[in-house]
Amino acid sequence: MQKRHKHRFSFMVFLRSFFRVFKFAFKNIYRNKGFALAALLMMIIFLGTVTSLIFFQELAKYLISQLRERIDITAYFKEDTPEEEILKIRDELLKMFPEVRAISYISKEEALLFFRQRHQGSEILEKALREIGENPFLPSLNIITGGDPSQYEEISKMLESSSFAKFIQKVDFSQKKEVIEKVYSFTQLITRIGSVIGIILVIISLLVVFNTIKLAVDVSKDEIEIMKMVGASRWFIRGPFVIEGIVYGIIAALFCFGISWIAVYFTSPFFSVISGGFNFWAYLLNHWQLIILIQMGLGVTLGTISGFLVIKKYL
């Protein structure tokens, strides 16, 4: 009976202490409005940087995929290859190479049609075609992968050496190899530069937020010392700082989301024009849950970690 009473008593003490930690945190925020504002601003800048990076990362991905989709290889088949065989080979390739994005079959008639459309009005070419007398084009498969030259090389080798080889006239990989490699390494470079800039920006913003919170704790150094002197436990001292950090994180995330919404709404048409079709607004509408989750998660994590780490020095 006495044991149960003691248990209930300690639970009550725990509950009281828990609520007191919250009370101290909110009182601190209220009494240090200037600092609270500065901390919020820093957090908003940090979350804003991360959000911008998410959007620009998506934009970069879009532009790179646009660029990579312009590079392809074509496998030309012997004139007498039946269409069913070519389509079988196409299905086989799609099965064997999951990284292949698209394979389109172009019959010799379609090839001729495309050629004529492309060179409409060219008398010389029309004359040349008439002189040949028959359709000089070969049926082909146009293959697009993720842009990696090694993938193209692998497909090309496979086509030229497997059981399909008897149908193949030629694969134009060797002619396009240099261009494919250049485009691929250029887009790789852009991705890397983007990532490095992103990491640097995130680190700078993190340091700014961390230092702002450190400054606040440094100001409270004496207070923390007195708390220890009167027998406050570590978590009773640390708790309010951590909760303060979390509150700043949540508020900053909400603010940042609102700002992102407005900013994207107004700038989306502009970016859509200069990016060649990428729609920020549509991206936000499709991914807003993920974006607010990232902002909230980062804000809360950063607030918690800052509160924990910075105060560690004085405990």
Partner: peptide, 10 residues
């Protein structure tokens, strides 16, 4: 009050 709050007093 802080000293008493630390000790969990009502």
């Amino acid at each position: 009050s802080y000293l008493l709050e630390v000790a969990g007093i009502s």
